[in-house]
Amino acid sequence: MRGQKRFAWLMAAPSILAMVALGIVPLVWMVWTAFQSFSPNPRIPPRFSGLDNLGNLVGDPQFVGSLKITILVLIAALILQLVLGFILALALYSIKRARGLVVSLILIPTAIAPIVAGIVWWMLFNTRFGAINSVLFQWFGIDPVNWTIEMPTAYIAIVVAVVWQWTPFVAVILLGGLTTIPRDTLDAARIDGATAWQRLRYIVLPLMRPFFLVVGLLMIIEIVRLYELPFYITQGGPGNQTVVAGVFLFKLAFSFFDLGRASMMSVFLVIALSMIAALYMRLVADHKNKGASG
């Protein structure tokens, strides 16, 4: 028995070591650096600075602004992704032939590198040369809109791009969930006279909760660490109004080379993300339905 245990530990050891080396050590180092003051000059050693980095961040309007805009993007994009993703999943579910091909095609936006997607959307939203303004003018006679340099259009542009890129991914995960719902259950409900809405409300959605939970969490993480799309579409403008958390974090770490403040912000985001995730799980996970959803 002891030999078996030792063997099991031996087998697990590489994974544990890898996890410690790649996950725990950087995390601990990040927490340590969050309380240090760094100079861009490596010859000047870091010094313990207590909560100075946090104080400096809180006093920086760009930090506060980045949290606000990130939350706004998160709320709008998450809701739209889940709603549109579910509608798309239902549409895909109804396809009987060549569904695999269609799924592959709609996943193209997700497969595109965010940096490329950012550039493409920046071009589409360009006031003077962009296709969106061109269509709005030619079809509806609407004067050019300064999408990327005014609010709230800059915010809308970012949300549109994020939703465009990730909704197909959401749809595919939810499609996977739809395929797990027993056909018999739906048929029985139909025979019992349940309307389409009732089947959706009382059978499909409860059974889909775990899938919404997983894909929602993934999207929350993705949106909170958003960087390339807003960076390229608005460059943080107008002013600093669309500097999302990911962009500000990048600036701290790589433009200002302030590892202390960057780490403190990362710690802050990890805590905030955990709280948002917990709140989301509380909203979505229905303990009463745990048994039903397996």
Partner: peptide
Amino acid sequence: DALQGELHGFLTG
């Protein structure tokens, strides 16, 4: 960066 943000906000707002 601090200057650009404020200038851009003023000039485009």
